[in-house]
Design a protein around this nucleic acid. Structure first.
Length: 214
DNA sequence: CTCCCGATAT
DNA sequence: ATATCAGGAG
């Protein structure tokens, strides 16, 4: 059984290594304003960032404001975002989200967790992406990579994303949260992928329960 | 726990 | 042909 100080020192070492291996690690969604990151992240639910970027390249030229999305024809928006999957839910959520942004938030993307979570289609992952990247408010972004890697590395035993989020917050200094989340995504894509992790090439294999228990 | 869905790896 | 990728809502 590992105690909390042991977890913290391991987390610190892993975080240091990953920040050196992926110094450029940042959100890989394409955007140049808050609304675009919010929409892109909503589309990224169960979809790779790469595919989202293909769709948003055209989408962001066609819909340039909350008003465009709020008054969009649902069927047309569905077609515009179709390749990202779950397109009916996502189109409905985007329209509902932008209507609420206009109605309750002056058309601006909220800068706090509670308001972001009140938006349809926005959960903690999406909220933390927006908070971290737009408002520089640290948060652990628990996507599928964060979940898989933090379990493999042994930083948490939890499966529930919210519990993982709070577990990691408890063992990493606040100023590392966003960068650490982003580096996990990079490492998850490049080395520690779901199907066949390349443990031989892994810089943190020495700290990894998954690798050491194979 | 179930539903939502297209794309790619195997 | 099928398994897996990748979050949120009810």
């Amino acid at each position: 059984m590992r105690d909390n100080d042991d977890l913290k020192s391991r987390a610190k070492k892993i975080s240091e290594i990953l920040s050196k291996v992926y110094p450029e690690a940042t959100c890989s969604l394409d955007y140049d304003k808050p609304l675009e990151l919010l929409i892109a992240t909503m589309l990224a639910a169960q979809c790779t960032d790469e595919r989202v970027n293909i769709v948003t390249w055209d989408l962001f030229k066609k819909y340039t404001s909350v008003y465009n999305y709020a008054s969009a024809n649902p069927e047309e928006l569905e077609e515009d975002i179709r390749p990202t999957g779950f397109y009916r839910n996502k189109a409905r959520n985007i329209i509902g989200c932008c209507k609420k942004l206009i109605k309750d938030f002056g058309g601006k993307v909220p800068d706090n967790m509670e308001d972001l979570l009140s938006l349809p289609g926005v959960g903690r992952k999406t909220a933390n992406v927006v908070l971290g990247n737009i408002y520089k408010i640290p948060g652990i972004i628990v996507d599928t990579h964060c979940k898989r890697l933090s379990n493999r590395i042994g930083l948490t035993k939890e499966e529930d994303p919210e519990k993982i989020e709070f577990d990691l917050m408890g063992i990493l200094p606040r100023e590392k949260w966003t960068a650490f989340s982003n580096s996990l995504v990079y490492h998850g894509r490049a080395i520690c992928n779901a199907r066949k992790p390349k443990c031989v090439q892994c810089h943190i294999a020495q700290y990894c329960d998954f690798f050491n228990n194979i």
